[in-house]
Amino acid sequence: MDLTLKIWRQKNREAKGEMKSYPIKGVSPDSSFLEMMDLLNNELIEKGEDPVAFDHDCREGICGSCSMYINGEAHGPDRMVTTCQLHMRKFKDGETIHIEPWRANAFPVEKDLVVDRSSFDRIMNAGGFVSVNTSGNTQDANATPIPKEDADNAFDAATCIGCGACVATCKNASAMLFVSAKVSQLALLPQGRPEAKRRATHMVEQMDHEGFGNCTNTGACEVECPKGISLENIARMNREYLSASMSSDS
């Protein structure tokens, strides 16, 4: 496949970026999108040019590192996959492919396609955990009966890899789907209930503090999420937050 890549190039956080065109020839339709980017970078290095910086790690869709806005969609035109799982057979020979970083003020561009997603870490630090001392005397997980439906829903929420596609896709740059998945995975389990109120209020306040937009229920995040995180989680977080706000002990 012969392609034209239009890629966002930006030297650092302060620099003004721009879209630059790169022709690339001989791309295998069976290669992954990131392998195609590797091919481009090899060519750029051979020419003595600066390779395109992009995040990647596991390359099997579970780490949440890769983050490219491809042809106007987070993780490209395929559904339920991350950029690393996207294959070049999804594109046509001779096509021009636009590649941009996630766009949100809460995700500043560090270099080229790499964005700073530490705002997600700070939201998790605000309450996305269960305070249990696990040293030495951990309890058997099966000792606490949990309804199958709750366990399944908690597991579904826990599959969120925190890639940020929800924020990138949302017209408001809202992080509601991510935060709601993290709130839900613990709110659904008995181990998460003691801190549920504090968790919901602190994580939502931190989310707002980071500068993410408001959710307007367009549902775009759910469509583009590579793990299929449901809007049901946002409704659950709304309930958790509103009930926590109304109670006197939160």
Binding site: H98, E100, R103, V223
Partner: peptide, 25 residues
């Protein structure tokens, strides 16, 4: 206004119609 301010730099290419209705947007 808040939502517009949450994304200062817009996408060069965006396809919002692929994942959300015109009414919702």
């Amino acid at each position: 206004l808040q939502n517009n301010n949450a994304r200062s730099v817009k996408y060069a290419m965006n396809k919002p119609g692929e994942n959300a209705t015109w009414m919702s947007r």
